[in-house]
Amino acid sequence: MDLFSRSWAALRAAVAEVPDEDFARPSGCAGWLVRDLVCHLIIDAQDVLITLVTPADTEPTRDAVTYWDIVEAPTGDDPLDALIVRLAAAYEEPRLLKFHLDDVGSAAGRAAKLADPAVRVGTRGEVLTTGDYLCAYVLEWTLHHLDLIAHLPDAAEPPAEGLARSRELLEKIAGAAFPRSFSDKDALLIGTGRRAPAEAEKAELGDLAAKLPLALG
């Protein structure tokens, strides 16, 4: 849970440092600009708040690994993706997006720190412990941090411990380990299809290459 807080704080800090003109740059998410990604993070923060106050009294059906479903790779044409683009445009000024993310995002961060990791919560029709739910979101925050800085070379990268934990989760989802020669960042980018592997990397992946990319939903 502490790693959730550090990863989330780092991502929000990175957003706060993005110059206004860079909100119109592409992000690492297909079809989304940086402003669209930030709008998505606001909705993510709202989802965290909703989930943390949605207790469940049945046994967990998912954990931090099985929380994720493998879905079709995003194209940017999904109706919800298109809605995000319209919502982001409605903010008009980057400072308003930054303000809303800081407002809702700070509340989500505080709620996570106060949460009991053993309490069971419901989300997306499933039940998890709070600890597993927040652990799953370390992967969400880390991947979106990489998306945020995809075309912003001077921006701060995600925390090293968040990258390492996210790689561990992705390897469990894939059911196989990435080559040791891959950095945590490269394993995440290649594993989720955010970057195509070079020929030498593809050779190192071996049988795992056939399972990639892993689009998570």
Rank of each mutant, 00 (worst) to 15 (best):
L3M: 09
S5N: 14
S7A: 15
L11Q: 12
L11T: 14
R12I: 05
A14I: 06
E17P: 04
V18M: 06
V18Y: 01
V18E: 06
V18G: 03
P19Q: 04
D20T: 01
D20V: 00
E21H: 14
R25K: 13
S27E: 10
C29L: 14
G31M: 04
G31L: 04
G31V: 08
W32E: 02
L33C: 06
V34H: 01
V34C: 04
V34A: 04
R35F: 01
D36R: 09
L37I: 04
H40I: 00
I43K: 08
D44I: 12
D44S: 11
A45G: 13
Q46N: 11
Q46Y: 13
L52F: 09
T54V: 07
P55N: 10
D57C: 05
E59Y: 07
E59W: 07
P60A: 01
T61F: 09
T61Q: 07
R62Y: 05
D63T: 03
V65T: 11
V65R: 05
T66C: 11
Y67K: 05
Y67C: 03
V71Y: 02
A73T: 15
A73I: 07
T75Q: 07
D78P: 06
P79S: 10
P79A: 13
P79G: 09
D81M: 13
A82W: 00
L83A: 13
R86M: 10
A88Y: 05
Y91F: 15
Y91I: 00
E93W: 00
P94L: 02
R95F: 01
L96E: 14
L96P: 00
L96T: 01
L97N: 05
L97C: 06
H100M: 13
V104E: 13
G105F: 08
G109F: 06
K113S: 13
K113T: 08
L114A: 15
L114P: 00
V119H: 13
V121R: 11
E126P: 01
V127F: 08
L128Y: 03
T129R: 14
T130P: 13
C135K: 14
A136P: 02
A136D: 02
Y137W: 14
Y137R: 15
V138H: 09
L139C: 03
E140F: 10
E140S: 10
W141T: 12
H144A: 03
H145L: 09
H145I: 12
L146V: 04
H151Y: 14
E157Q: 09
E157P: 09
E157S: 12
P158N: 12
P159R: 12
P159C: 09
E161P: 07
G162W: 05
A164G: 01
A164K: 03
A164C: 00
E168K: 03
L170F: 07
E171G: 14
E171V: 04
I173A: 02
A177N: 07
A177I: 01
A177S: 15
P179T: 11
R180P: 08
R180H: 12
S181M: 11
F182K: 08
S183R: 06
S183L: 03
D186Y: 07
L188Y: 05
E201M: 10
A203Y: 02
G206P: 00
D207N: 04
A209E: 15
P213V: 11
A215N: 07
